[in-house]
Design a protein around this nucleic acid. Structure first.
Length: 494
RNA sequence: GGGGGUGUAGCUCAGCCUGGUAGAGCACCGCCCUUUUAAGGCGAUGGUCGAAGGUUCGAAUCCUUCCACCCUCACCA
């Protein structure tokens, strides 16, 4: 770094501003590579900007690679072409500097498409050396691969690791494709609901708690958008969605981040079958536009996202995979059968929790191809409407892919009286020590009392969707700045 | 929280089992080189071996504790 500061001063002594305000730019590397033949034929002068990522100095000439937002291009710098003054500047450049070059295209003896530089300017000096990497024909040496460092220093990661760049490029595409699908094909509108909430709800999770000074009041970071979005349905917006961060104060692992991105959408005058159809339209479309095909590899499985997806009720699945009946069961009997399967259970768990446990232990991991698991026990779903045919169930589904949950949806409960009873039951569990049961949200209940049309809602974990479509196996690989422990200095000895 | 793994030069890693005072490649610095591409050649610099204790004549190496990351289980949609 000291060496680079010295160079910075030498550059200033040459009367060159190492951090100028603007520059000329006519193309990016992608455009040059695409139209190379005609640009070369017509001897078009190209102005490129980018970061110097490799340098091969050979006395009075040099080859280098310039990387921009698209890809990279080799440039050729020759003293006799750029002149003594610019050559002096060039020799003070380092890998990592951002420069602008202009010149015409040619092909080297080794047949690499190259820009012959006739003018060169420094746009921003690099003072902190980048990790050195080498690459040829897609093969890489000395790759900067320390995961901890990648997560903590994403700028460097994005410069140095094309794979990371591609993941986040795709993430952005996925989100804009989802928006386009909902806006243009489905007639939804995007809305924004509070992140800071006086009460939290819409999911079972422990919230983050914060405090507002001026109001002198406790607020929570939202764990879900659900209750607010339904209030908008009551208000007359028939199709709304939100793509935003939710926050859950829980453990973190490969599939869970304390802040994560959720898509929630609600459609009036539809039921949960609408949401299944929506996913069967959206996912193949996304897979093709992001990945080029509906078949992909993820978590060691070959997965095909072509619709339609298998639909199977939770009751059938439990019967088929474990021979256990889950509807209207006596709590202790059910607990006994779970124990026989070797599932560790806690004495205070109710039937809902037991079924949930059975399901995640024995059934989820086997759902590799996209599968809608439908019709859940009412105990697990305080916000879902009871099943139109079967007692004890609600109209709900979750989508499983590769053994993991990707979406959750139900026909929304819009009977305000029943909803109040169910929320009061949750509040009772909460009072009994279940930190994840939600409190009663009076504003939400009053909105149901005004009258919410029959409605269906859907939540999709966007981070997991990105993992699936980019082949990443950790949620940290698809979040630009994942939550990490502090890397503090070790405490001094006493 | 339990179990396993990792941490050595700016980067990627060897050395640890079997203790003797730190190594390679790349980067960086100097010199040579006007179509190279993991450019090449010559030379130089660079490390409190994650931290702190302990054992020992002697610790990167053995032991203990702590810190961070990864995997896994538990918790958790």
């Amino acid at each position: 770094m000291q060496a680079r500061l010295d160079k910075l001063n030498k550059i200033k002594e040459l009367n060159i501003d190492p951090f100028p305000h603007s520059c000329e730019r006519t193309h990016n590397t992608g455009e040059v590579l695409t139209d190379f033949d005609s640009l070369k034929e017509n001897e078009i002068t190209i102005n490129l900007t980018g970061r110097l990522v490799s340098l091969r100095l050979m006395g009075k000439a040099a080859f280098a690679h310039l990387q921009d937002e698209d890809s990279k291009l080799q440039i050729y710098i020759k003293r006799d072409i750029i002149g003594q003054e610019t050559w002096q500047l060039f020799k003070l450049l380092d890998i990592g500097d951002i420069i602008g070059v202009s010149g015409k295209l040619f092909i080297t003896r080794t047949e690499e498409r190259t820009l012959e530089v006739s003018a060169l300017s420094l746009l921003s000096k690099n003072l902190r050396p980048l990790p050195s990497t080498k690459e040829k024909d897609g093969q890489r040496w000395h790759e900067w691969s320390d995961k901890d460092e990648k997560y903590r220093n994403r700028s460097v990661d994005l410069i140095v690791n094309p794979d990371s760049r591609e993941v986040f490029w795709k993430r952005s595409l996925i989100i804009s494709e989802i928006r386009r699908f909902l806006d243009e094909q489905m007639g939804f509108i995007e809305v924004e609901t509070p992140v800071l909430q006086p009460l939290y709800g819409g999911a079972t999770a422990r919230p983050f708690v914060t405090h507002h000074q001026a109001l002198d009041r406790q607020l929570y970071l939202r764990i879900a958008d659900e209750l607010y979005l339904k209030r908008l349905i009551t208000g007359g917006f028939n199709r709304v969605y939100e793509i935003a961060k939710d926050f859950r104060n829980e453990g973190l692992d490969r599939f869970h981040s304390p802040e994560f991105t959720m898509l929630e959408c609600y459609a009036a005058y539809e039921d949960y079958k609408f949401c299944m159809k929506l996913l069967e339209d959206l996912l193949p479309q996304l897979a093709v536009s992001i990945h080029g095909s509906t078949s992909l590899k993820w978590a060691g499985h070959d997965i095909n996202l072509s619709a339609p997806y298998k639909r199977v009720t939770m009751v059938e699945l439990a019967r088929e995979k474990t021979e256990i009946e889950i509807v209207n069961r006596d709590r202790d009997e059910l607990a006994g059968e779970l124990k026989q399967l070797g599932i560790a259970i806690e004495p205070e768990w109710g039937t809902g929790k037991l079924i949930d446990e059975l399901f995640s232990e024995k059934i989820e991991p086997e759902l590799i191809q996209p599968t809608f698991v439908i019709d859940y026990p009412v105990e697990l779903s305080p916000l879902a409407k009871k099943h139109r045919k079967t007692d004890g169930l609600v109209e709900r589904f979750e989508l499983f892919i590769g053994g993991h949950e990707f979406a959750n949806s139900f026909t929304e409960l819009n009977d305000p009286i029943e909803q109040r009873l169910r929320l009061e039951e949750q509040a009772r569990l909460r009072a009994a020590g279940d930190e994840e049961a939600s409190p009663v949200d009076e504003a939400f209940l009053q909105s149901l009392e005004i009258g919410m049309p029959p409605t269906t809602g859907l939540g999709v974990g966007v981070d997991r969707l990105v993992m699936l479509l980019t082949g990443c196996d950790s949620i940290r690989d698809v979040i630009l700045f994942p939550t990490l422990r502090d890397k503090h200095q070790d405490k001094p000895p006493q």
